[in-house]
Nucleic acid binder design. Structure first.
Length: 577
RNA sequence: CGGGGUGUAGCGCAGCUUGGUAGCGCGUUUGGUUCGGGACCAAAAGGUCGCUGGUUCAAAUCCAGUCACCCCGACCA
């Protein structure tokens, strides 16, 4: 490729709408152009990156016996009605009608399509296990796309579906997939990816993992133990508390707390620690708007995903009205109408001898509240968020750390949700019918590209790992108007192309500053500078984008030196596997 | 869906308060001078000022509506 012909502008100034680095650099470097909210055109540099990522994914999926297929983007709604998701999924599923008025959907995921294929193709146990995968466009009408390719509405995804005749077989395959994923991220040069336990949602309750790139701009919150291997998404991280120091019992006393509606105010006024208070958080069920009140220890927060999973129902933040009989700011367990209100006690309250809690009367709280003595026996559930410095549910030490991450992939033991709802069965050795057990496995291709950029860049541009770089080598000709640099640069460029190297040459008649700054935006790991200054001594300059290498090599040795350096960079990645 | 913000040339922006020939920087084209970290001089091309309606002799500017995009939150099988 020659820069003079490369389509797309590179910008000196940072585009106004970009708030994260990878987004700004990919716009500035001519990788992506926004068409709509969360919808982008990929220009050649970005397309080359995603193609290389796709190639790596294909190789690793094939290695674990995956078979590539291609499902349609537009699917008949009937399939989604079979699984029940035509109505259960919200507006992120785009529904449309064809000319006959038939309902259609844009594929946001392809479990239905996979089962549609597999239920006819795998009626006998002899076909199992098998995995089918595709790399294809998904459309999800996200409520809020943001951050360039990090969170978009239309994107390319690798999605895979495996089918098994036993849970053990699924688990064995799941482990293979886990390893394949680790290889994919390493091969893509993504260093800070970890696998965390994730929330499986309300369907199934089986195992799932998310592969997270650790970065401050990540939208997911992760709980990581510094002492053992425990790593989980906040939604899936059990919150453990130790209330042994709070077991002292006091008499129940009603105290006036004028205008003190927050834990902060009440605890300060009564001179009690936050963890000896009982906080009430009000929700309403989406189904009938009935109230759900969650009581947790005052120093903790409710994780709504945990709450939803416990209730098996969608909830939203409650709006307390005068008619509801709920006294906002002074809510306590005692005296709530249990017929009308679902009351949930978080585990963090268990074993506390004397709590401060609301009295359900304006301007009053109780002190010395003991749940068992004053309210009765309750079953505690875990609905609070784990906290920094909290107790690890695995090793029991106070070594939990909270981090942020971008989800670049997930693997999921699905069970029989789709095979049952869509009536997929196979005949076993005894002629009996069974529902196959499924797993599904996703990787966002564009998000992975943007994540690598986010992880690996400097002020001047991305620093692409050689395995996914749009070009491996960039030949920079300075003074392309002069015969010698132009000829030698072009010869080198042609020799590299002939040697199978992905090479781009800047052959334009522009100043050195433009050549270098735009080369930084292209981010090729290897740069060869051909200039009159070096040619005077019969040399060219060889540098790496990460500034690790900077040396002069004789023109005659340049090709070999570049090929050696290229091999070295590839070997470095291979060594991490 | 709630809160906030912005729409003027490919990109970044000024002009709007106080209505009167649509501007600046970057980029692009042409000619010339430069040449190792976004050069300089000269000339030029490029805009229904998001859209619709209203007020007015006259609207980028005032008024109403509408659409789009961005940010924060809600949400994300």
């Amino acid at each position: 490729m020659k820069m003079s012909a490369l389509i797309g502008e590179r910008y000196k100034e940072k585009p106004a709408d970009c708030t994260i680095e990878s987004h700004a650099l990919m716009v500035r470097g001519g990788y992506i152009k926004q068409v709509n909210t969360g919808v982008y055109t990929l220009l050649p540099p970005a397309r080359r990156i995603t193609q290389k990522i796709e190639r790596i994914i294909r190789e690793e999926m094939d290695r674990i016996d995956g078979q590539e297929v291609l499902f349609p983007v537009v699917l008949p709604a009937d399939l989604w009605k079979e699984s029940g998701r035509f109505t259960s999924v919200g507006k992120e599923l785009v529904r449309l009608k064809d000319r006959m008025g038939a309902d259609m959907v844009l594929g946001m995921t392809h479990e239905e399509a996979a089962v549609h294929l597999a239920r006819d193709a795998a009626k006998t146990y002899a076909k199992y296990p098998f995995m089918i995968y595709q790399i294809q466009t998904k459309f999800r009408d996200e409520p809020r796309a943001r951050g360039g390719l990090i969170r978009v509405r239309e994107f390319t995804m690798k999605d895979a579906y495996s089918f098994h005749t036993s849970q053990e077989d699924l688990e064995a395959y799941y482990d293979r997939c886990y390893e394949a994923y680790e290889r994919i991220f390493k091969r893509a040069g993504c260093k800070n990816v970890i696998a965390v336990l994730s929330d499986s949602g309300m369907m199934g309750g089986s195992i799932s993992h998310e592969f997270m790139l650790l970065t401050d701009i990540g939208e997911d919150t992760l709980v990581i133990c510094c002492n053992c291997d425990f790593k989980a998404n906040l939604e899936a991280a059990e919150n453990i508390v130790d209330n042994s120091a709070l077991s002292a019992i006091e008499p129940l006393t009603l105290v006036p707390t004028p205008d003190m509606a927050t834990i902060e105010e009440v605890a300060g006024f009564l001179k009690k620690p936050h963890n000896a208070t009982c906080k009430a958080v009000v929700y309403q069920k989406n189904s009938d708007d009935s109230f759900v009140i969650v009581f947790t220890r005052g120093d903790l927060e409710v994780n709504e995903t945990k709450l939803r999973n416990f209730l098996c129902e969608e909830v939203h933040a409650g709006v307390v009205t005068p008619e509801s009989g709920i006294v906002a700011g002074f809510i306590g367990p005692m005296g709530l109408d249990a017929k009308k209100i679902t009351v949930v006690f978080d585990r963090s309250l268990e074993g506390i001898g004397a709590l401060v809690c609301g009295a359900n009367t304006i301007d009053h709280h109780y002190t010395g509240f003991n749940i068992e003595r004053d309210y009765g026996k309750v079953s505690y559930v875990d609905v609070a968020k784990a906290v920094e410095g909290g107790i690890c549910p695995v090793c029991g030490k106070r070594t939990l750390k909270i981090s942020n991450g971008i989800e670049v992939g997930n693997i999921f033991q699905l069970g029989t949700k789709y095979t049952k709802s869509m009536d997929m069965q196979y005949l076993d050795e005894n002629g009996e019918l069974h529902y196959p057990i499924m797993g599904c496995y996703g990787i966002g291709v564009g998000r992975l590209a943007a994540s690598v950029c986010e992880e690996s860049h400097d002020d001047y541009g991305p620093i692409w790992p050689i395995s996914i770089a749009p070009w491996e080598v960039q030949v920079c000709i300075l003074r392309a108007d002069q015969e010698e640099p132009k000829r030698i640069g072009t010869e080198l460029y042609e020799a590299l192309e002939k040697a199978g190297v992905d090479v781009i040459m800047d052959d334009r008649l522009v100043s050195a500053g433009v050549v270098f700054s735009e080369a930084d935006l292209i981010g090729a790991p290897i740069r060869v500078t051909v200039s009159p200054r070096n040619l005077k001594d019969g040399m060219v300059e060889l540098t790496t984008r990460d500034k690790g290498v900077k040396k002069q090599v004789p023109v005659v040795e340049a090709l070999d030196a570049i090929l050696d350096l290229r091999k070295e960079l590839f070997d470095k990645i291979a060594k991490t596997l």
